[in-house]
Design a protein around this nucleic acid. Structure first.
Lengths: 210, 210
DNA sequence: TGAAAAATACCTATTTCTAGGTATTTTCTT
DNA sequence: AAGAAAATACCTAGAAATAGGTATTTTTCA
């Protein structure tokens, strides 16, 4: 056994990948063994390489960071996952927990924080960005649940709506009846007391859901 | 006069800035003299430093890359601007022209392309990402001009839609025929090549319209 | 294991949106 | 003053969203 940490990095922007590579190129105990631009490529990379830590962008396409993380945890439970997020999307803290990831870091957190996180992960600990940690404590649990009280499925549908995908298309993509999607949309609007989807999109953006 | 290119970099994500810094750290003829996370910080930096090239992220907040670019060109017309964009948003090619920027590059283009662009800019030439160039040629000029840029009335209506107000209600508030509002909405979606109002809301938020 | 939450699915009726037009008037700009 | 752009308004048909239900199955969690 050696103490070289083997890392996979995944983000759909080449420049960002380049940046990460250069950041890690100075660190002797870290080796980047694979990179990917989509969730599918991540899974493929796992079949070819032995990976200790996967650094995934939340907004990565096909599938997104959380989904990819779940897949990794199922097949390779020893691998730790760091989720990188753009904004302080506190609606996703729950997703983070469910996904089984070990660290959750804001992209604007800086390089030092990344290295600290990797260090903690190697010790078997978890890590969450300072800024994100605040949200945890500031928001009482009940309030938090009440404020949004959106289920993962509902959030998923909201995100798809934001891309201009309509109920029929969503039902196809998620292998659901169109009725089900319509029911979800109805529940979302009712829960949040919103008039229509346009207002829902505003809400979603203002709460950092999108 | 020296041949050292002084660069400002601006993006709201620290890791991305770090990446750019490391990329340029190997290049002897380039010096990063300032960095910024918002448009305001960019303007402030211009008051403190002599800058040859500004590299701006489109999606930077307050104000966005294009707006910031316009401000720079007004006050410091000698400075060249490189706009970095996440996706192939051809809706913004026109914005790019209006802003007076000298280069327009996709973020996933890779480091080499950035260096080529800087080289061209130093020679007084312009540069556009290969992938984006395609879109230029495909779009006939007339079509191109008609395709984008929202009128004040259209923006007003978009804002109201974001509040959940529907066509009928908008027509009442603005003392217009409902037909007129519907026509405006139709024109907006066509102009921006969007599928529906949900996607329009996403567009509006992402571009800082809402 | 039992209750609660989430996800699923169906039905009807009505309203609203979208897409395809055309066309006139007003405002801006050169 | 002429032309372009913006704003206005109308028509039709079809697609999609919304609102009101009900109800079963699956997951989650205490």
């Amino acid at each position: 056994m050696n103490n070289l940490t083997k890392i996979l990095i995944a983000d759909d922007h080449q420049l960002f990948l380049d940046g990460l590579k250069l950041i890690f190129s100075n660190i002797p105990y870290i080796e980047i063994v694979a990179e990917a631009k989509t969730g599918i490529q991540v899974i493929e990379a796992f079949e070819l390489h032995q990976i200790d830590i996967a650094i995934l962008d939340v907004n990565m396409p096909k599938p997104n960071g959380f989904e990819t993380c779940k897949l990794i945890q199922q097949k390779y439970p020893k691998c730790k996952v760091i989720i990188l997020t753009m904004y302080n999307e506190n609606a996703f803290i729950r997703e983070f927990f469910k996904s089984g990831a070990s660290a959750y870091i804001l992209k604007n957190a800086g390089k030092a924080e990344l290295l600290i996180a990797i260090d903690k992960l190697n010790k078997g600990e978890k890590y969450i960005s300072k800024e994100l940690e605040k949200d945890f404590e500031n928001i009482p649990k009940d309030d938090f649940v009440k404020t949004f009280s959106l289920t993962p499925r509902e959030i998923e549908i909201i995100c798809m709506l934001g891309k201009g995908i309509n109920s029929n298309e969503i039902s196809e993509k998620l292998f659901l009846s169109a009725y089900t999607v319509i029911t979800h949309r109805k529940n979302i609007l009712k829960k949040l007391s919103l008039k229509n989807t346009a207002e829902l999109m505003s809400f979603a953006y203002e709460k950092g859901l999108l």
